[in-house]
Amino acid sequence: MFDASIKKRQASRPWGQWSLRAVALIYLSAMLLLPLAAVVSDGLSGGIQGLWQDISRPAAMAALRLSLWTAAVMTGINTVMGVLAAYVLVRYRFPGKAFLNALIDVPFAIPTLVTGLMLVVLYGPQTAIGGFLDRRLGIDIIFAPPGIILALLFVSFPFVVRTVQPVLTEIDLDQEDAAATLGASSWTTFRRVLLPALAPAVISGALLSFARALGEFGSIIVVAGNFPLRSQTAAVYVLSQIESDNQRGASAMSVVLLAMAFTLVFVVDFIQRRQERRNA
């Protein structure tokens, strides 16, 4: 009924509809597709071969590797802790819950440069914690991969929590009760009942935070600096190439980052669509 009335409306006002669509599509193209196309064509101006040459330089490869492995480590930690945080926030009542729930979104709102600064202030070699870790345990945080991972954990923390939370809210408590009466331990219940239902949301959240991490720049440049082959991530590498007037090198790395981002976003979209179909 409702669909039908909408269709009727569309049919009776084709011009209004079309002009509206045209405006939206033109805007989308101008703002999103055009710049994307510009970077891609610039990166590919030397053909695939040229792109490969630009990427296979040691500094580029190192930057890419660093970005990927730190993002992977972060995603692993974030997934486990994010599911845990979401579970606690949905299933338990405790004082300060509303505040904690609001706090989770804070990384979205804080400028990432500030995030980096916070970590430097906390873990820098001159500070108590940083000094202790450096002298006693020989662990460098600042200007080193651990700093990058800490920064990434901070900036992408909300993704897993916020994708899992609504799904968890919708899962009936009776499901867990049913499993309990059937004799399943809480671990079995989590593994066999809760996790399969949560899996799509968990994977989406994990992939989104991974994608976010690949592109992270602000906090990393403060925490890790810009040392090629040591603490330079892919995004920071792009900056260094622009600064040294190697626009094509910057574009080449950008194309790689874009390709990965697109893939991840499409996979997430696919998972979410399938989940919606399943729930329908």
Partner: peptide, 10 residues
């Protein structure tokens, strides 16, 4: 235990 909303594992 049988629940009103079935509570089957989907």
């Amino acid at each position: 235990f049988v629940f009103q909303n079935y509570s089957l594992f989907r």
